[in-house]
């Protein structure tokens, strides 16, 4: 496997969406190529860091929740009026 081919397969590898033979070739390559090992390792960490940090929910401001609920209520009333 070439370095370029390895780059193109990193994502598939991390997602477990890779053919067995390609996976074996990739593992053999990163065991021998220091630069590719670093790229592989730091790409994996990139995804892990995002997934670890982003577990925290994005809080919805109360004002936005209120605004949305009011808009939905109004929309609901309008659609019921149309049906009547």
């Amino acid at each position: 496997m070439s370095c370029r081919k390895l780059l193109s397969e990193i994502s598939n590898y991390l997602d477990g969406e890779i053919e067995l033979t390609v996976r074996q070739e990739l593992e053999e390559h990163i065991a021998k190529c220091p630069n590719c090992w670093v790229i592989f390792d730091t790409t994996r960490k990139t995804v892990q860091i995002y997934q670890g940090c982003e577990c925290e929910p994005y809080p919805i401001p109360v004002s936005l929740q209120t605004r949305l609920q009011e808009a939905l209520r109004k929309l609901c009333e309008e659609s019921q009026t149309k049906q009547d």
Binding site: Y13, L26, I30, A31, N35, W37
Partner: peptide
């Protein structure tokens, strides 16, 4: 690729006895 790789890490982690912990996320 150009650039300096982390050879110490490579030497300690990427061997056939100690594979590179490359499990799917």
């Amino acid at each position: 690729f150009s650039g300096a790789a982390g050879k110490m890490q490579f030497g300690t982690m990427a061997t056939f006895d100690n594979p590179p912990q490359a499990q799917p996320l």
